[in-house]
Design a binder for these strands. Sequence first.
DNA 1: CCCTTGACTATCT
DNA 2: GAGATAGCCAAGG
Length: 114
Amino acid sequence: MTEFQAKFDQAIWRTVSKIKPGRVMSYGQVARAAGFPRHARMVSKAMSRSVEPLPWYRVIRSDYTLAFEVGGVGYNKQRSKLEKEGVRFMGKKVVPVETDDSAGLDALLWGPTE
DNA sequence: CCCTTGACTATCT
DNA sequence: GAGATAGCCAAGG
């Protein structure tokens, strides 16, 4: 275990554990928030080194797709965990909360129906 | 040292 | 949208 990993891991774990259920963050965002910009590619390693369980499945790519091969074991596991928390998908992509129109688009376009 | 490897990203075609 | 390409950067061979 290098000294870099010791500090990096701590920062990443702290950041990932703060992601709220139903929300997601990209590898790049996590790295940046942890204080290590340009280290997106190392986030996954840090998470896999964690002994304590982390909401690793709430970390996805910047284009809102999952990092695992579609249909693969890892992909299915991550996706089901996310969906269980209410994260919705459109094809291969996660529907961002801010864009989730399930409850608000009609209201935005046509006004409240009540 | 040099080269390859990633649960990555931004930017072109 | 799907590829290709070029950056990115610590680790391990």
